[in-house]
């Protein structure tokens, strides 16, 4: 799954760790999502979307789209 988490995080000037604390996961998980090595659960995707004030589709899109 492709995502623009890194650019959204950069736009807010927050670190991976700060985002991880905000959505209650580890920094390594945020790093893995940004590197597109891990697809988050719906629950975490909703938490990330909620944090950035957008919908899940704004952050994530399928690999083949």
């Amino acid at each position: 799954m492709k995502n623009d988490l890194r650019s959204r995080r950069d736009a807010e000037s927050i670190s991976q760790e700060e985002l991880a604390v905000a959505v209650d996961v580890t920094r390594q998980t945020i790093n893995a999502i940004e590197r597109e090595r891990y697809d988050p659960s719906l629950e975490l995707a909703f938490a990330l979307a909620d944090h950035f004030g957008c919908s899940i589709e704004d952050i994530f899109e399928p690999e083949d789209s």
Binding site: V25, T26, T29, Y38, S41, E43, L44
Partner: peptide
């Protein structure tokens, strides 16, 4: 404290 999460 979150020691482990869904990815682990």
């Amino acid at each position: 404290v979150t020691i482990s999460d869904e990815r682990f």
